[in-house]
Amino acid sequence: MRIYNFLSKKVGELTIKYSNLPESYIKRSYEQVYWKNPKGYPQYPAAQIARKNYRFTTNRPWTMQFGRQNERTTQRKKVFLEPIGEWMYFKGDRVEILVGRDKGKQGIVSQVIQERNWVIVEGLNTHLRVVGKDKSFPGITVQSEAPLLVTTGVKLVDPETLKATDVEWRYTEEGEKVRVSTNSGRIIPIPKAAQETVDYKSRELYMENPDKDTTAAVANKITFAPKLQTFEMDIMESMGIKEDRTPATTYWY
């Protein structure tokens, strides 16, 4: 069952973390369910018929662009992915490119797309793209980065030797999980940029909205006081509701 859960999970963990959306919402937003058995009737199993294969691209699964690329009528060829044990690459990592025009160059990871084992490296592995071309306007040429496979396309850079290296997950003596370069044995720390989500750069830098957000100080305050009462009794007491009728005793046979 665990293996099945792992394999059936389509959207990557880092993608969910970056979006700051509930996992169930993301699933609901990209799924195409054609038929669902009615709920609450014992004769129906909880079965559903839905589209099975989606093409994940650089468009995030909860966006409209993703929906347009996966129209109900279109079926695209299956993309085979190499299974990856533990993910190594995070936003803000320095990596060396192993393939293509920019082979041997180093850059910073600007985006991670786990669904396709992709990373996008800032300003490298680019092509030119003409935007806004019209009959009367020749368009603007922009540089756009192509994604790179983490299995063959990139390698992390050792912070000591500044050369590409293989990396392992290991534990420190304090029990902390760290990435270690196999060449020099140095720890490669996970960059601060990896904490970034659509809502903030890092948790400490988040700007609280006084109208909508419960501030951290209020949220962390403990207001629970143990009492010899049930929840309902506590509510009745605080709302000043008095009731002295007791229901008749009931028996189970």
Binding site: Y200, D211, K212, D213, T214, T215, A216, V218, A219, N220
Partner: peptide, 11 residues
């Protein structure tokens, strides 16, 4: 004091 959302700053 409570609002609909919880600040990300909260642990």
């Amino acid at each position: 004091d409570l609002n609909p959302y919880v600040s990300y700053k909260a642990e």
